[in-house]
Design a protein around this nucleic acid. Sequence first.
DNA 1: TCATCACATTCATTAAAATAGAAAGATTGA
DNA 2: TCAATCTTTCTATTTTAATGAATGTGATGA
Lengths: 296, 296
Amino acid sequence: MPILNYHHLRYFWAIAHEGGVTRAAERLNLSPSALSLQLHTLEQQLGHKLFDRQGKRLILTEAGRIALEHADIMFQAGEELMSTLAGRPTASRQILRVGALTTLSRNFQLEFLRPLIGRSDVELIVRSGVMRDLLAQLEAHALDVVLANSASPRDARTALRSHLLDQQPVSLVGRRKAKAPRFRFPDDLRSVPVLLPSLDSEIRITFDRVLELAGIRPIVLAEVDDMAMLRLLARESEGLALVPPIVVRDELAGGVLVERYRIPDITESFYAIVQKRRFPNQLLGELLMRSVHTQT
Amino acid sequence: MPILNYHHLRYFWAIAHEGGVTRAAERLNLSPSALSLQLHTLEQQLGHKLFDRQGKRLILTEAGRIALEHADIMFQAGEELMSTLAGRPTASRQILRVGALTTLSRNFQLEFLRPLIGRSDVELIVRSGVMRDLLAQLEAHALDVVLANSASPRDARTALRSHLLDQQPVSLVGRRKAKAPRFRFPDDLRSVPVLLPSLDSEIRITFDRVLELAGIRPIVLAEVDDMAMLRLLARESEGLALVPPIVVRDELAGGVLVERYRIPDITESFYAIVQKRRFPNQLLGELLMRSVHTQT
DNA sequence: TCATCACATTCATTAAAATAGAAAGATTGA
DNA sequence: TCAATCTTTCTATTTTAATGAATGTGATGA
């Protein structure tokens, strides 16, 4: 299989855009003869004429038009690469790759990304996963930022930074009921079952500690690590779910769920974990400027 | 300004994907030393290390990741180019460039393109213009097909073909009125004003000839070459518009306009004008298979 | 009509680059 | 620790690209 010679293609590209061998040669600081020669070897290797020679005019053939379209894509990408590596911001479509803990509130993710949603010049890639995988991808430069509810483990090897984005109170929420006696915390937890985030979340650890001090062992209906699932369960179950209200924002607004008790001294923190980069993503910069409260 | 060496980038691309100099060398039928050398010159020219050398492992740096993403775009385009020129159909996103006479019914255009609308693997480009410009673009391979209501002029130079897509009857349509005496053609045209397509359309020419034979000089309220404009005028005006019913399909269905008289022996023809191509557009082939009735 | 210009092209020569092969240094895995 | 496997370096060689002068060919204008 013959392989494409990209230098030849680049000359062809210049000739097509400049409209002639001579002008292209000037721009490239080469002799016209060199270009003419290379153009012909390209045509021979491709097996198609790229220009019709009408007198001294060069008119693109159909094959030439096709080649030009592809060449445009290629060399535009090449020039953008050079600009990026030279530190110049590029005007073209930008991409932001976001990793998010599977367990994280979707509403929270949405709030963070909202400034970019609907922008046609932005491509958004959101990948879910567990902390270890996401951080690995971050270090491999395959992600620009990881959204999590805990800061990154301090690691001397890599220069990870955790930006504290937000702190949300944590509440016990449950379905609205006709007769709703006031909830007494923590004593009512002896009888009212609960739905809890799993053990590796900070709010769960704090919650357990509070109850242990009070000598209470709660009735756990479910233990879920995915906030989206916890939200669904809260709507279906008789128990109270331990969540930041933002997780069930829509249900609270719609009256399906009600906040029974806001637990003092427990908050859920949201972090954006990034790597110190030499070619910073401009979109990410904008988002962090909007959202960041303090830095760690 | 340093220019990017695309051969070096191609080697880098292979090395990154194969995961090492040795494997890439095998695939490219080159010696590892050659690749290693070229990789280093590339890094030097770019001014950035592309790999971190961890022992004998090559790990992409951030600059390397960026370069790889651009290289992916470039060489994917290159391989697609080779496939296309070799006559192999490519699996990727396809583009169809359509030119349409400004004067043509939008509903007709829509019907023709309907099979492609909503297909996410298809990009549709529709450009309006006058016949001369559109045919020029067709000959320059910048358009795949031109939609028109007349066949292309026979021209020995270029191999243009006109496919007859459809023939529509032509009617006089007007706003619905409470008292609607039966329309008498052509005599009523002495008193009822009309909205007509402009003189360069075939139906206008035929219409004029018919009236001339009958010795009738119609009251022309408007003479418009754009069917979309004619449609709007028909809704606002007291006169009758001379159009193929498809132009005002929605208005007829909704009862805003009514067909007062279908003129016998006048039809509007719709053509797809294409150039005989050596690399036929597959999408266009599908559309023509569906729509074409006869060929000219 | 003919001279002239502007351009593409061809050819032989020179300059630049890419490549192979041998050998060294380094790391991984048994 | 030893062997296998990689990357890398160095130098000689091959391949490829570029030049400059010469050629041919339409277009332009007196």
